[in-house]
């Protein structure tokens, strides 16, 4: 079964949330879902860009006040 994981990068500034996302995904398998929590609005740009480049899929994202949540599906490398 695919795994669901959450990564909390709140308070960190870009590019740290992207680096942490990258490192978390390296340890996950295809089909797993990673939910990233962040506060730096830069992630709304950088994480989708990182996913496009590396072939992973952003399922959705939402924002409540300063809190941002992005869900990523790990795809074939």
């Amino acid at each position: 079964m695919s795994e669901q994981q959450t990564l909390d990068t709140r308070g960190l500034l870009c590019p740290m949330p992207v680096i942490k996302t990258q490192n978390a995904i390296r340890k996950l398998a295809v089909g797993d879902i990673l939910t990233v929590l962040a506060t730096d609005p830069g992630v709304l740009h950088d994480i989708p860009a990182w996913c496009r480049i590396n072939g992973h899929k952003v399922l959705d994202h939402s924002q409540e006040g300063r809190d941002i949540r992005i869900r990523i599906e790990v795809c074939e490398d």
Binding site: C14, V18, G42, H45, A49, R52, I53
Partner: peptide
């Protein structure tokens, strides 16, 4: 706000 290296990689189509 964009990460320039990510943006460049995307332009180039590289990982």
């Amino acid at each position: 706000k964009r990460n320039n290296a990510l943006w460049a990689a995307e332009q180039l189509g590289i990982k």
